[in-house]
Write a protein that binds this DNA or RNA. Sequence first.
DNA 1: TGCGTTTACGTTGTGCGTAAGGATT
DNA 2: AATCCTTACGCACAACGTAAACGCA
Lengths: 290, 290
Amino acid sequence: MDPHLLRTFVEVAETGSFSAAAERLNFTQSAVSQQIAALESDLGTSLLTRRPVRLTEAGERLRRHAKILLVRLEAARADVTRTSAPPGRLTLGLTPLAWSAPVAAALTRIRAESARLATRLLVAPLDRIVTATATGALDLGLVDGFTAPSDPLRLPEPGDPRSLRVAECPAVVAVPSGHPLARRTSVDLADLADAYWIDAPGVTPFRRLPVDGLRAGLHYDGAESTVLTGLIAAGHGLAVLPEWLLTGRADLAAIPLGVPRLVHRVELLRAPGVVDPAGPASLLAALLAP
Amino acid sequence: MDPHLLRTFVEVAETGSFSAAAERLNFTQSAVSQQIAALESDLGTSLLTRRPVRLTEAGERLRRHAKILLVRLEAARADVTRTSAPPGRLTLGLTPLAWSAPVAAALTRIRAESARLATRLLVAPLDRIVTATATGALDLGLVDGFTAPSDPLRLPEPGDPRSLRVAECPAVVAVPSGHPLARRTSVDLADLADAYWIDAPGVTPFRRLPVDGLRAGLHYDGAESTVLTGLIAAGHGLAVLPEWLLTGRADLAAIPLGVPRLVHRVELLRAPGVVDPAGPASLLAALLAP
DNA sequence: TGCGTTTACGTTGTGCGTAAGGATT
DNA sequence: AATCCTTACGCACAACGTAAACGCA
C-alpha cells in the first residue's frame, strides 16, 4: 500500500486505462501494469477488470479510501513543511454561496488593515475548497451548507472538524413573487412535494435536492446564483436558498421553512498550521466577528 | 513519505530512542537512523533532536498526522480485503459508559436470535475503540460522550462520521444525597465554579472536566464507574454523569443540568464495510430500536 | 489485424545489514 | 568508558524501461 501505488491506481481508475494513466504519470504502460499487479497481490484481491478496465467492488472501495489518503498525506506534508514565517500573500477559497454580506465586509476590513498582504480569491465547488484547504493550497476556505440550527456542517472528507462558524441565516423556499404561496409565512417541505424544483448542485450545497422525494423539473448545472434566482423568478421551479440571497428582490418571495428546520451556515476552514496568517488580531477576528 | 518511514518515525517518537524503535520493528539501529534521515531530507526539516531524542515542532505535527494516516491506511486495507461472507463471530467494543440498559437489552436479543454467533466483548477507552473499529479489529464499537441535545458526538480521528445514534439521556451533576444542592431541580455549571470536581477521564468521555475553569479536587485514573460514584457518595467531589448511572442509588442525587444544556449520548460505529454482520434484520435493528 | 495489457529480462537505484566512526554523558 | 547515533560500504532486492508475447475486439 505504497502511496505511489495508490496514486497510479487512482489514476487508472479515473482514466479507465493503464496507458492513459501511464502517460499522465510519466511512466510506461509496463510500469503501471506492474504497479497494479503489485497492489492486487499485496491485497490479495482483484481491483480492476481488464478489457474493459473497470473497478471491481473491492477496487471501488480502495479508490474511495485512496483518494482521501492521498489528500491527507499531502496535507500532512503541507503542515510539516509550513514555515512559521507569515506568508506574503493570502489565498482564500469560497463556495459560491459562502460569499455573503458579512464575508464581504470582513474582507474589506482585512485588506484595509493589512494592505501589504496580496490576496488571491478562488470560487469553486465544496469538494475542491475542502481538499485545497486541507492540502494547504488555500490558506483559508469558506464553505456553506444547510443544517439544523447551530449544528455544524457535515463536510466531505477530508474536512477538518476544527471549522469555525462564520455566519448563519434562515433557509427559505424561494418562489416567484406572483406564486400562490408567496404570502405564506411558513411552509413545510412535505407540503411542497407536488411542486417542481430546480436542482442546482453547483449553487446550493445539497448533493441533489434538500429532501428525497422532491421532483426536479429542471436541472441547472452551472454555479452562477443569479441564473438560479432568475430561473425561479421566471417560474421554472422552486429552490431552497439562504434568505439573504433574496432580500431586495421584488421578483422573488422568500417563504420561511417550517419543517425540516434548516439554516444556511457558512464555516471557515483553515489550512493545517494556519492560525491567523495576518496576525492574531485581524483576519480570523474579522471573519468571525461580523 | 513512505508509510514505512512514518511507522518507524512514530515508533521513534514514542520510544524516544532509535535503538528501542529498531528493536521493536526488527530493524538495526542503522536502518532506523537512515529512515529518519530520509524522512528529514524528504521534508526538508529537522524532525527530531538527538541526544536526547525529542520531537521538534515539525516532528510533533508529523507525529499527529502520521498516527492518523497509519490507522486510516490499515482501515483501507481492512475494508478492501474484507470478505463479503458474514463472519463467524462478532467483535464488539465499548467505552465504559456506553454500556447502558438499552445496550444490554439489545445484546441479549442479538444473542438469543443468533445463538451461533460467537461474541467477543472489549471495554476500552474512546480512542482505542475508535481506532480498533476503523481498522476492522472490531466489527462494531459503541462510544459515548456528552453533547448538546441531538448533536452528534465529536469523535477523535479517525472517527467515522457515519456513526449512528443509539441512546441519549440527560446529563446530570452527581452529588452526595446529603449535599446542600441535592434538592435543587436544576443547576448551571457556572454556579458550581467553587465546588470541587472529580476529574475521571477514564470513565467520563471528557478529556478533562466538562468546562474549563472548574477545579479538580481529585483525579481518578481508573475506568471503573463504581469507584467514581463511590467517590462522589463519599463526598470527595462532584462529576457530570449520565442520569441512568445514578438511578436507584440512595447515596447519590442527580441534579439536572441547566446551562450548558448537555446530554449523554451513545453512538454506534461500524467497521468499514460492515452493514450488519448478523443479517439485515437483527443486530443494528436491535441496537437502534430500543 | 490492431490496440492494449501482460510477461520477460536487463539495468539502475534504493534500502538494509555489518562494521567502523564520532559525539555526548 | 559506555552508550547511542551516524557514516561507509557491500550486497540484495525492488522497480523501471525496452521489447516481445499475448489476448480480446
